[in-house]
Design a protein around this nucleic acid. Structure first.
Lengths: 214, 214
DNA sequence: AATGGTTTGCTAGACGCTATCACCGGGGCC
DNA sequence: GGCCCCGGTGATAGCGTCTAGCAAACCATT
């Protein structure tokens, strides 16, 4: 985490301040959502006055973009760590849910409502493909999705899978895993299940079973 | 749509102005998202000056809440109309997607990232249960979900289904239909499929098939 | 037709936010 | 030591929500 590659002491200090700004930003976001992020408030919390922050981040968008990048990165890291530890498909599903529940606002920063004008920087889509690669590996190993006409379509449009060797059924399985888990998670985190009475974890587990054969 | 139940001409004018405000609000939201909604800008567009709007809506939150209510209502209306026309499960799924694609920001207003502090007014959850009731009817008629331990859990927590007579498997089917469709839709509308190459409609159709048996 | 209360819209302004400017002071570097 | 640049400050502009106070229009009643 320190990432202090020891260049000039100047740059170390700079990186340290940037990190603290991001930490405070996460605290604010966790409390009131990304839309309520106030650079002024962060500066005041850190004991310095408004414009000083702009020495470290050009504007609000750049800070948020950085936070999004970090969020993506943390998801990819967890996935790759799980994969390295020999995680099964249902382990990956569990990992996904734990990551989401750890910090719902972080989840929403990645998968939530986009700002119409906003364009994700290319490196985040690259990180997203790392996540997808882990999923593809696992699906190739233990996929159980049924045959479907969609698989002929996906076989002809497998650009997004890069040079991964997974068969069409595995591509289908990875997409479906992604969308189904996201469907349950996002509705749960958005609070659409509150007051309905059942346990979202059970539904999530059921969806996981439907994709792994228990 | 007019809803002009002819009371005093005063109230008719008032309702008319409120409607125009909401119309402009929808235009703004469609263009730049709900977070960019500016009451000032709406007022200027309508040829009146800022604070005059506050004669019609107490504050920004009240306006947005009203928009959310309208959005919910439009979804419920479409679903009930489809049901009255004898729609099948896959017809309902198609209805859902059309409603979402009609106005993505309207979809996000209902199902998107929530503001942490915000509490939905009770009548919106009531409208949500209308939607669910239509889904339950259809699932009871032609559900095909596999047996799963989740169904014993949902049988003991069927509070959300009200006094609907659907068996546990149908409850399960309705939930899964909802979450799976939402999973594909929200990722599609948020742009997470752009650049991947395949057609989201095909994936949506595949998910629909997985829940209706072609 | 005149009157009085209500409703509506206006301007002025308080306050917070992002963002940018010119202007210092102190620490690193030769 | 002397230079310079980096990081900080206050001032300022612009936009946002929202309150307060005032003039005019409206409506119902007498």
């Amino acid at each position: 985490m320190p990432k202090s590659d020891a260049k000039t002491p100047r740059e170390r200090y700079r990186a340290q301040v940037r990190d603290e700004i991001k930490t405070r930003a996460w605290e604010q976001i966790a409390g009131a959502g990304a839309s309520a992020l106030s650079l002024n408030a962060i500066a005041k919390q850190m004991g310095m006055s408004g414009p000083a922050l702009y020495r470290y981040f050009a504007n609000r968008d750049e800070l948020i973009t950085e936070l999004i990048r970090d969020a993506y990165r943390s998801l990819a890291d967890r996935f790759q760590a799980a994969a390295k530890a020999g995680a099964s498909l249902s382990d990956l599903a569990r990992t996904m849910r734990e990551w989401a529940l750890d910090d719902p606002q972080r989840y929403f920063l990645v998968y939530g409502t986009p700002v119409p004008g906003y364009q994700a920087p290319p490196d985040t889509t690259l990180i997203a493909s790392e996540v997808m690669a882990v999923l593809l590996d696992a699906c190739e190993a233990e996929g159980v999705v049924a045959e479907d006409p969609f698989q002929t379509h996906i076989a002809e449009h497998r650009f997004w899978a890069g040079d991964h060797s997974a068969p069409p059924a595995a591509l289908h399985q990875a997409l479906v895993l992604w969308t189904r888990l996201h469907g349950v998670l996002s509705l749960e985190l958005a609070g659409h299940f509150t007051g309905m009475g059942f346990d979202p974890a059970e539904l999530y587990a059921a969806e996981t079973r439907s994709l792994t054969g228990s």
